[in-house]
């Protein structure tokens, strides 16, 4: 008896699945890419879905590199239309795209993001230079021109003006775009203040990079995963620790954590916007031009993203922690996006 019931049940459910599966058609934009751009892209996607007759786009957070890899796999229904990136596309990626038939890529700059070095409000705010950051975090540092394993345990060993506290920094793992940008802007920026290392750059670029783009693995730098909320929580629990993450997390949690000064500049909206805060980067997204009139809604999505309502000074993205571009640049970009100006190879 039971078996009969089961077979009826199975038959019924198989039938249901067969009925509820519609034909595959792409009337929905697919977006992949950076976890830093994700909060902004999703906000636009939601507003776009609410305002227009199109379906709300699907946004995946795959990381900048992962997103561009998926993006460059080909043209067609199964490949994403747009990828977000917290850095600009590399020439190797443009080549990869071209190899798979994607020759026309439209680049849209979203705005800026600052990478902050924050700590708990219970602690005092400190002033770091890029040189201090590199000297505290590199695997090997230069002492009188000789490279030695980083001996520093306390901040005041790095720079006597800093407090006598253990060096303890929570930051993103190597898969993160934030980490890439931090390496390039903060670590390399501090590294090249040593003339003897800067001299290596001319002779051997690889060796130079190997020296500048390393982070010590003896416990002073703690990889905290991609979850920045976790870092914020840990900073509150441990007032001596510092955390590295995007400006939007500082902005949302400004009652419990503070951003420390880098090269004398505080990570504020204005300082990042005008470029005087040294650890800031541009955020982008890339569109496959071949998909523009195939997947419905791409033009309208672009329009929504670049509108004053979203990207402008008082737009809803600014509220989410995005630092908008200066007006002139924004207007040029809006015009280029409208005309789908592609990257020149």
């Amino acid at each position: 008896m039971l078996t009969k019931n089961i077979s009826v049940f199975l038959g019924a459910t198989v039938l249901t699945v067969a009925i509820i599966s519609p034909a595959i058609a792409r009337d929905q934009i697919r977006i992949v890419g950076s976890s830093t751009v994700y909060p902004f892209a999703t906000a636009v996607a939601e507003e776009f879905g609410r305002k227009t007759k199109f379906k709300t786009p699907v946004v995946e957070s795959t990381g900048s590199g992962g997103g561009l890899k998926l993006f460059c796999e080909g043209v067609g229904e199964k490949y994403p239309d747009i990828t977000n990136a917290s850095r600009s596309i590399k020439s190797s990626e443009i080549k990869r795209c071209a190899k798979n038939g994607i020759t026309e890529i439209v680049e849209v700059k979203v705005g800026f993001d600052g990478i902050v070095i924050a700590n708990s409000k219970k602690s005092e705010r400190i002033e770091l230079s890029l040189r201090d950051i590199w000297t505290a975090l590199a695997t090997e540092i230069s002492v009188n021109g000789v490279m030695v394993t980083n001996p520093h345990k306390f901040w005041n060993q790095v720079n006597p003006t800093l407090p006598h506290k253990k060096i303890e920094i929570l930051g993103p793992p190597p898969t993160s775009g934030t980490r890439d940008a931090f390496m390039e802007l903060a670590m390399e920026g501090g590294c090249k203040t040593y003339p003897e290392i800067k001299a290596i750059k001319k002779k051997n670029k690889k060796a130079y990079k190997a020296i500048c783009h390393t982070i010590r693995e003896d416990g002073a730098y703690i990889e905290a995963g991609e979850n920045d909320n976790l870092i914020v929580g840990k900073l509150q629990a441990n007032p001596d620790a510092f955390g590295i993450f995007g400006y939007s997390f500082l902005d949302q949690n400004s009652d419990v954590i503070q951003g420390n000064l880098v090269n004398g500049k505080e990570p504020t909206f204005d300082n990042i916007s005008n470029g005087s805060y040294p650890v800031s980067r541009s955020l982008y997204f890339y569109i496959k031009k071949a998909h523009v009139d195939k997947t419905s809604g791409i033009r309208e999505y672009l329009k929504e993203f670049t509108s004053e309502n979203a990207m402008g000074e008082y737009g809803y993205l600014a509220e989410k922690g995005l630092i908008p571009m200066p007006t002139a640049e924004l207007e040029k970009m809006r015009e280029d996006a409208k005309n789908l100006v592609t990257l020149s190879n």
Partner: peptide, 25 residues
């Protein structure tokens, strides 16, 4: 990030633990 509630097995969808992961972040 998927706003529309999925209607069939071919619509884009997430799952409960995934939603927790996304919100936590």
């Amino acid at each position: 990030f998927i706003v529309d509630v999925p209607q069939g097995v071919l619509d884009a969808a997430t799952a409960l633990p995934v939603q927790i992961f996304l919100w936590a972040d």
